[in-house]
Design a protein around this nucleic acid. Structure first.
Lengths: 187, 187
DNA sequence: ACGTATATATACAGGTCTGTATATATATTT
DNA sequence: AAATATATATACAGACCTGTATATATACGT
């Protein structure tokens, strides 16, 4: 991938997070990225296309980092579940955490026909599905239910962290997740 | 309050929720409300002022409904805590639920200097504080921690419900809250 | 050195948005 | 009936936005 395209993606991710998606114009993006609109529209067919690519990259980066961390640091499925929020916390509190795009995007694009909303919605579902697969492997009875609960905790904590960095929300989400997982394992 | 002002508030609440705040123009609001811009700008000094009043009304309506419900239907403090999500679920699944404004607003106005962001942030804090007061009365040891956890669940579930109505997220949030509260009461 | 691909600089068309100005209509009060 | 407050209708200025058009510069392969 061209370095310019990559630079635009990084800058857009940053600005979308700190100023909002709709409030960030392409002129601002190219100015910060140190390039021009012509170049942006060479790599992205439209602003919507740029938004979609920002979302895709953010989700892929997070998902692959997380599953790689879990696979190398935990063996038993139940261990993976229990360590889930530990790594999520590590990701979220890292200095180059740029927010979870799909949470903001689904708020800014509530219309269900919008491609941005659809992608956000799908990413949220995918993440929940990933947790559900971990829960299923760990022989949790109501794997779907636990996955939903953990994803609610996750999304709530990310939102709190986006609202105020360093709020420590994820630390308490981690504690809550341990209680919920232990309870589900005992069922 | 004038019926027109009230009508504008209701319509704006609705449109902000279903189309987003920044994506909803005042022209659309007055058209749906059946009035004109001149009237809107008589009752509200600016669009930002309208947004702030929409947020205030939404939060007041919810908070007063919730505390009244809890005060009449539960006596012991621990009972209030345990019934909290039952009433929240009733509110959220009611047909005229119009979303929790401050959750969407904080996503659309991430800039901490924005008055809209500041009010959203304050409302989130107030809600958490209310839960904390319930937990304190119920003699929970780490009342702050439990309050934070429950508010994370709440915000995550509202977000999920806003993303897809009828997702049943609040039902599972309620179950999770019971587990967390029971655990905290036993400490 | 020459041609080609890539990036820049800049201007602008067409649209949307907020907030105001101007003129008119409808109620209500006296 | 006259006067006053309230609401409508409509137009518009000024700002912003997306996406494109045009012309120029820079690098690179051959």
């Amino acid at each position: 991938m061209s370095t310019l395209k990559s630079k635009i993606l990084v800058v857009a991710t940053d600005l979308f997070q700190t100023r909002g998606i709709n409030s960030t114009g392409v002129d601002t993006i190219v100015a910060v990225a140190g390039t021009t609109k012509m170049t942006l529209y060479k790599y992205f067919t439209s602003k919507e296309n740029l938004i979609l690519e920002v979302l895709k990259k953010g989700h892929e980066d997070f998902q692959s980092w997380l599953s790689e961390k879990l696979n190398t640091n935990a063996k038993k499925p139940s261990e993976k579940l229990l360590k889930l929020f530990e790594f999520i916390e590590e990701w979220v509190t890292s200095p180059n955490f740029r927010g979870m795009g799909f949470i903001k995007a689904s708020a800014e694009f509530p219309n269900e026909e919008s491609p941005v909303h659809q992608l956000s919605s799908e990413q949220s579902r995918e993440f929940k599905q990933y947790i559900c697969s971990l829960a299923t492997e760990a022989n949790i009875k109501d794997a779907e239910g636990l996955a939903l609960q953990l994803s609610l905790l996750f999304e709530g904590a990310v939102q709190a962290e986006q609202m105020k960095r360093g709020s420590g929300a994820m630390k308490y989400a981690k504690k809550a997740s341990k209680i919920l997982i232990d309870g589900a394992l005992a069922d």
